[in-house]
C-alpha cells in the first residue's frame, strides 16, 4: 500500500488548493454576494491563483519521476472528482 499512501498527501494538498481556488473565484463571489447574507469574500491575487492552479500539476511530475503510475492515475481521477464536489458546495459552505 506504500505507493497509495504516498498518493494521499498530494490528494489532500489538491483538495486544499481546489477549495482555495473555489473560494477565491471572482465569478462565484459576484453571484453569492447577492444571495448569501454575510457572504465572506476571500480574495487571492490573480498571479497567486494561477500559481496555485499550476501547482496542481506538480504531483504529476513527482509521480512520473518516482515511477508511481498507479498514483498518477489515482491522483488524476481524484482531482477531477474532488474539483466537481467542491464546486457543488453551496456559497454558505465554501
Amino acid at each position: 500500500m506504500n505507493h497509495l499512501i504516498a498518493t494521499f498527501p498530494f490528494i489532500v494538498y489538491a483538495t486544499a488548493v481546489l477549495i482555495l481556488l473555489t473560494k477565491s473565484d471572482t465569478r462565484r463571489a459576484t453571484f453569492y454576494r447577492k444571495i448569501v447574507p454575510d457572504y465572506r469574500e476571500f480574495r487571492i491575487r490573480k498571479p497567486i491563483r494561477m500559481a496555485l492552479m499550476y501547482s496542481l500539476l506538480v504531483p504529476f511530475m513527482v509521480f512520473i519521476v518516482v515511477g508511481n503510475a498507479a498514483g498518477f492515475l489515482c491522483y488524476f481521477g481524484a482531482i477531477t472528482v474532488i474539483g466537481w464536489l467542491v464546486a457543488e458546495m453551496p456559497g454558505n459552505v465554501i
Binding site: R27, T80, G83, W84, A87, E88
Partner: peptide, 27 residues
C-alpha cells in the same frame, strides 16, 4: 472560467444548466 460557479434559482434549486456544465467540465 465557469468551472467553479454553480448558480442557483430563487428557490435555492441549482440551475440545471450549471449543474450539467460544471460536472461535465470536471469529468
Amino acid at each position: 472560467t465557469d468551472i467553479f460557479l454553480l448558480r442557483s434559482a430563487r428557490s435555492g434549486e441549482k440551475l440545471k444548466r450549471d449543474a450539467h456544465t460544471v460536472a461535465g467540465t470536471w469529468s
